[in-house]
């Protein structure tokens, strides 16, 4: 009887403890549903908690297993367990968002291609999918409340500021704006005409450029044909020979120029001496100077020449008078 009672007590205790433990584990982590782990990183977890639903295309595919701060504290790592047969989409990412208006959040596996405007946090070092967090209802309502307050302030200020004088000023401003817009329209028309002319000129220039381009293309084609006909080699050879000849001529010209330079130097010294002689002659120095400056000497010289000329005529007529030849 005692053993039976003890066994009954033991059975009840074990049953109660097992009920507590297994129930807790099942409720906390979805025990009994094996799956593949998926990790995502976001800047903010929002109100996502362990046990929150993981959805893909609106279908419940798993649970959030753990939410923890990433090393360094600059991100949040969301660890999920999803169905083992789940195939992630191209460019997978995780979007944390409220599941309903009652505080429960979900993690939705999406493709980044479907959200081109949304910024997903990326941390390749954590080997986690990129993630982003949508604002919850409270933030949205707080923002809407702030906007409503701002609108109220603006409307109050508008009501205070919009008096009859303001309306008159506004009417004048509108008239001025109308006149200004007319002037702007006229300017725009003028500028449009100028732009038309400019466009015509540009078009003509484009046509000329096109013709030039065609001519250039033909020239290039000809050059290309010449190059392809291999005449260039002969031309280059001839050009080389011509260059050699020019080089020889240049060398000869160099020698000639050197000779010419020496001749010029000699002529220069000759002219210098001649200049000194002429200067001395003009100064009456020397025989020639005296001859040039003294008329008596010139007259004497002229007379001497006349006598010489007479003497030579006499010699020619009477050589024996002045010359005597003997062989022995």
């Amino acid at each position: 009887m005692d053993r039976r009672r003890d066994a009954l007590v033991g059975a009840v205790v074990i049953l109660g403890v097992l009920a507590g433990i297994t129930g807790s584990v099942w409720l906390a982590s979805g025990w009994g549903s094996d799956g593949q782990p998926v990790r995502a990183v976001t800047a903010d977890a929002g109100q996502t908690m362990p046990g929150a639903a993981v959805k893909f295309r609106g279908v419940d595919v798993g649970r959030v297993d753990r939410v923890r701060i990433a090393p360094g504290g600059e991100a949040v790592v969301i660890e999920m367990i999803v169905r083992p047969d789940l195939v992630l989409p191209a460019a997978p990412a995780v979007l944390l968002a409220p599941e309903s208006m009652f505080g429960d959040w979900q993690a939705e596996i999406v493709s980044r291609d479907d959200f081109p405007g949304r910024v997903f946090l990326e941390r390749p070092d954590l080997e986690a999918l990129p993630g982003a967090t949508l604002p919850d209802m409270s933030r949205l309502t707080a923002t809407a409340d702030e906007i409503a307050r701002n609108l109220t302030v603006i409307s109050d200020r508008f009501r205070i500021a919009f008096t009859e004088e303001t309306a008159e000023n506004l009417r004048r401003a509108i008239d001025n704006i109308s006149a200004l817009s007319d002037g702007l329209a006229e300017i725009v028309d003028q500028q449009a005409n100028r732009f038309d002319d400019l466009a015509d000129g540009v078009e003509q220039s484009a046509q000329d450029l096109g013709a030039a381009a065609r001519a250039a293309r033909l020239s290039f084609e000809r050059i290309d044909a010449i190059v392809q006909n291999a005449d260039v080699e002969a031309m280059v050879t001839d050009a080389g020979a011509a260059a050699a000849n020019v080089r020889t001529v240049t060398e000869d010209a160099g020698v000639f120029l050197e000779d010419l330079h020496a001749a010029v130097q000699r002529a220069d010294s000759t002219f210098a001496r001649l200049d000194r002689l002429m200067a001395a002659a003009e100064a009456g120095e020397g025989s020639l100077g005296r001859l040039l400056t003294d008329p008596a000497i010139a007259d004497g010289a002229e007379g001497a020449l006349a006598e010489i000329r007479t003497l030579l005529a006499d010699i020619r007529e009477n050589p024996g008078r002045y010359l005597r030849f003997s062989v022995f």
Partner: peptide
């Protein structure tokens, strides 16, 4: 002290 939590856990399980 020992049996009350056991009974309570069973009651919670059955209640849920």
């Amino acid at each position: 002290t020992i049996m009350f939590p056991v009974v309570a856990l069973l009651a919670v399980t059955v209640g849920i």
